[in-house]
Design a protein around this nucleic acid. Sequence first.
RNA 1: UGCCUGAUGGUGUAAUGGUAGCACAGGCGACUUUGACUCGCCUAGUCAUGGUUCGAAUCCAUGUCGGGCAGCCA
Length: 608
Amino acid sequence: MSVEPNDPGAAPAAPAAPSDFIRDIVAQHVADQRYPRIVTRFPPEPNGYLHIGHAKSICLNFGLARENGGICNLRFDDTNPAKEDIEYVESITTDVRWLIAGWADDCLGFKPKGAHPAAITSHGKPDLYLGSSEPSALSSHLSTGSAAAEPFFASDYFDALHGYAIELIKRGQAYVCDLTPKETEEYRGAPDKPGRNSPFRDRSVAENLDLFARMTAGEFPDAARTLRAKIDMASPNMWLRDPLLYRIRHIPHYHAGDKWCVYPLYDYAHCLSDYLEGISHSVCSLEFVPHRALYDWVLAALDLPRPLPRQYEFAKLVPTYTLLSKRNILRLVQEKIVAGWDDPRLPTLSGLRRRGIPASAIRKFVTSVGVTTFNSVTDIAVFEHAVREELNTLAPRRLAVLKPIKIVLTNIPAGETISCDATNDPQSETPTTRPIALTREVFIESDDFAEVPPPKYFRLKPGGEVRLKYACIIKLDEIVKDAAGAISELRCTADLTTRAGGANVDRKVKGTIHWVSATQCLDAEVRLYDRLFTVAEPGAEDDFLKVVNPHSLEVVTAKLEPSLASATPADRFQFERLGYFALDPKDSTPGKLVFNRTISLKDTWAKK
RNA sequence: UGCCUGAUGGUGUAAUGGUAGCACAGGCGACUUUGACUCGCCUAGUCAUGGUUCGAAUCCAUGUCGGGCAGCCA
């Protein structure tokens, strides 16, 4: 669960978020002093890995806290024991910490380690009014960022939630229903057709209390009974047709253990969890709009002290050429289209991190797309632009040749080394350099040579000249082919007077290409990634497996300049004229370097 | 044909009754020891029809089109 401490992605680069309708609302509430403190939350269910869509929510929620001197709680919304696992708690925690590192870590709300929030607030009255007159009693016990602290779990509130359920029954606002799942569905009606009341709707408080106690005690099998809110079976809002509050599940819970066999449902647990944590603004995505009435109903039915948390909804991120749902990503993993949840081609945060995308680039991207209630589709080019922009300032330059072709500089004696200075950071005001070796034999990119050049080809061609970057101009004299007719080497003459400091350094040629010494270089596996899908909206296909890009991964053995031997997974590099690359944190070893191409450089020539 | 919700260049977003702007993408050019970066210029938009108003992307009405809602998932 560690995050690379010197991850360049942790660099501040705090994008100033432009305002949006949610920030405007929060700003108004701050001005009105409506809440003692702005407290938001990021509430994933630990049933899968986080992806870039979640990053939008994380940046919004943490951004809101950060901009208003508040905190944002990482809370695991773990009310369904059938789906959740500690494995996901760990990966999600890692991903969140990585994404906000250096930007909003101070806003991360934690509970003191070992403390039980319900215990903190209940004061011996575990069943009700956990906050007493203090609406955010829990948050007053919170620390932020402390190492001896842990994130929140909805399952830590099971006692409190159960107590509230009993209170709802006592108030005549909830009842135990014996309808089967099938019957429950039938009674619910349809969006354009009212439902019918359950025959169990008018049970006495005493009977409901008894039945709920026996449900809790484990007397009944799974799905035999439910606890339901008594609202309105004819409501045009389906979520108000006596929604289920509790269901029976004889399954142990990964976090709460085997104490319970009744588990609360989302709509009941979420608003109360927000309340218990003193959340002021509960921000979620648009599909929860119809749930808001229920969110408010539960809090009102319990007559909880104000100010109450409020739910606000925004549109999810939908990038082109990308599939985001857990179900679909799972299928890609299971069908072995990708190597795992952290495959660098996946939009999971672990995949993006492994690919070398800096957290700051993800923040920049999700900030740039804004927050609205319009279901939009964001061109993945906007993401790629943010990544390049970030990496351009972050990544030192290095020389590497992906698909080598050998050049022999016939006027340089074998064994001689000419040292050249290569710039590390051309964007810097005070650039630094490192020495690289020019030798008789060098590799250049095979794309940088054409025996029959297309029009306006600036690179190496028969009889032509190019500059070897940081070194000198060379002229192609002879193409040597083997018996099969394949090119084995290119014999060139180096004009050493065009080196830095040389008499003819200013002589211009149209092309400048990258290269590495053939005798002083490193071999490395380099993985070249491309979009996983060939169409902009793979989710709109009947079967997205049919539009998987067969060339989404190409593996090459590249030649690298020797300085790359000391690279670490936290480093980012630009391999000049090629793109940005980072060491694969999983597969790379000092003996066998493996680089991932994070993203290519823009290439307006290739487009033509 | 229920309820909720939305619609601004190709894409995303701003303008909160007063000059429709920004970014991405695309095009052209300058610069360049990265065909990158940077810089300059250009292309291109208020869903429709009415109404209110001196003035409407914004307010009202109607329509059109899109998204969401019938898990004991979240």
